[in-house]
Design a protein around this nucleic acid. Structure first.
Length: 519
DNA sequence: ATAGGGTTAG
């Protein structure tokens, strides 16, 4: 019990009424609270509730919990006040209301409060388990979500489609393929296979695990795919490097008469740039205008990016020059468009005008200089960057190493290497490759070899001791891979990306998770 | 009585 509820109890013990003396009082206060809520004054409403020494109707608490966690508010203080008041004047509230409280705490970002409340519940229902499992899966605690998922069944509660959807969300977050297959089996067994949310989640997971055939099969079996389902399939094809199929699916969506999400427009447009499909991009632009999406910031910045990457800088500028479409992303897209097409001077002019920059904007400009071997400009820019911002990431460092390589400046390269080492960027494959290239280009083969072995041992330490990394030759193909588990996800992703970029044949990736489900 | 899935720039 927190200090707040203690305060309320003291108020009771001092002889304050636990029930309004006049039955009209509670009703009047409720009306006042509702009026504040209707005008969007959540804090004021909660404050009035908090100091009222009598209970309210449960539906009011339910509504308040929901508002505390609705998008944008994340009002943890208010959620705690509502909970405190509820328990003070209704010591044994109905289970559904406690479930709402758990959800509110979780959505406000306090998994601790949610967990504590769950632990202290004298009675639980399936919804309580679902609330906490969802909370864990949203708070970056997938392991705990899995544990609860298993524990739930052992405690005699049957998982329903919400449970499965949350469990699959956790599977996707850590690419737990083997676990997903087990959960998939249970879903079929329990008869939830036809659920659109679950089907979409499965498409998402199999796609992320690079098993696109399975993903597509499951997608085709969804009876009425909704906008999110379509978004997933378009995105997964895009990430597989199958831009054409992504675009095809985008247009299929219209035949199915499903209104796309703005992110689906983005994904489809990125697919267009990935295969330089300007004509299709123009068609999608037309569709966006027809459907009233063209003044959306996300869609318009994606359009700018698509036109820029397809080499149509005029159309890109035309959209960029329209009012209300200039966020950092649009700015970065247009700068990148000029920079990567060799017009670095124009790009720099725009870059200098940017009202706001982030590390990606800086990298976009630097990438232009390195791509066109403008080493002097690049070096000046790097020093400017160092003096202007502390925002540096592995992409910046990779680009700086390219500059060192371009200049064959091993002394500068060594300094950068030192920086990388001191700031813990060594594990990034992007940086590692940059170092390798830099040392080789400068003729320092011994250093290159050292970097290589360090890189390899790094993977071995971080990946294989936790999970499994096996590369093996078979039938003349070069390399097959088994991937990482949840403790080495970042490394697993890096290896995966490395393999895709370098054209290795991909066998079914194995992802291991130490928990085997028993039902 | 409810809850669950996806996310543009280097």
């Amino acid at each position: 019990m927190g200090g707040n509820s203690l305060l309320n109890l003291l108020l009771c013990d001092k002889g304050h009424l636990t029930k309004p003396s006049n039955p009209a009082t509670a009703k009047a206060v409720t009306t006042t609270i509702l009026n504040h809520l209707d005008s969007g004054r959540l804090r004021k409403a909660v404050s009035i509730l908090f100091y009222a020494p009598f209970p309210f109707h449960f539906s009011l608490y339910a509504r308040l919990f929901q508002l505390c966690s609705s998008t944008g508010s994340r009002a943890i203080v208010e959620a705690r006040k509502v909970e405190s008041h509820l328990f003070t004047f209704s010591p044994t509230p109905p289970v559904f209301l406690v479930n709402r409280a758990i959800e509110a705490f979780a959505k406000c970002g306090s998994l601790g409060d949610a967990r504590e409340l769950f632990e202290e519940m004298p009675q639980r229902d399936g919804g309580s388990w679902n609330a906490l499992i969802t909370a864990c899966s949203h708070s970056g605690s997938p392991e705990e979500a899995f544990r609860l998922f298993v524990k739930m069944s052992r405690s005699g509660f049957l998982p329903n489609e919400v449970t499965f959807a949350s469990a699959l969300g956790s599977c996707a977050a850590v690419l737990a393929l083997s676990l997903s297959r087990q959960v998939h089996g249970l879903i079929v067994k329990y008869g939830f296979g036809g659920n659109v949310v679950i089907g979409s989640s499965l498409v998402d997971i199999y796609g992320k695990c690079v098993i696109m055939d399975d993903a597509r099969k499951i997608f085709d079996e969804i009876k009425n795919p909704n906008a999110i389902s379509w978004n997933i399939i378009v995105r997964r094809y895009l990430e597989m490097g199958e831009g054409e199929e992504a675009i095809v699916m985008f247009f299929h969506m219209f035949k199915a008469a499903v209104r796309p999400l703005k992110f689906t427009f983005s994904n489809a447009l990125v697919a267009c740039s990935s295969i330089s499909a300007l004509d299709e991009g123009i068609q999608i632009h037309g569709v966006a205008i027809k459907m009233g999406f063209d003044d959306d910031e996300i869609v318009s910045s994606s359009l700018i990016d698509m036109y820029a990457k397809c080499g149509d800088l005029e159309s890109a500028s035309a959209i960029f020059d329209q009012p209300n479409s200039k966020d950092v992303i649009s700015w970065t897209s247009i700068v990148s468009g000029y920079a990567m097409s060799g017009k670095t001077w124009k790009a720099r002019e725009l870059f200098d005008e940017m009202p706001e920059r982030n590390v990606i904007s800086w990298n976009a400009m630097l990438a232009g200089y390195t791509r066109y071997s403008q080493w002097e400009e690049a070096v000046d820019f790097i020093f400017l960057m160092r003096n202007t911002t502390n925002n540096i990431d592995q992409v910046t460092l990779g680009l700086i190493l390219k500059v060192c390589a371009g200049l064959s400046d091993v002394e500068l390269g060594k300094q950068v290497h030192g920086f990388i080492y001191r700031h813990g960027f060594s594990s990034s494959i992007f940086v590692g490759n940059g170092l390798l290239h830099m040392y080789s280009k400068c003729g320092k083969m011994r250093s290159a070899k050292t970097v290589w072995f360090h890189q390899i041992s790094h993977w071995r330490d971080r990946v294989s001791s936790n999970a499994l990394l096996s590369s093996y030759a078979r039938r003349g193909r070069i390399l097959h891979v088994a991937c990482a588990n949840i403790f080495a996800l970042e490394q697993g992703k890096q290896i995966h990306g490395f393999m895709i970029r370098n054209g290795y044949t991909m066998d079914t990736p194995f992802l291991f998770f130490s928990c085997t489900l028993r039902f």
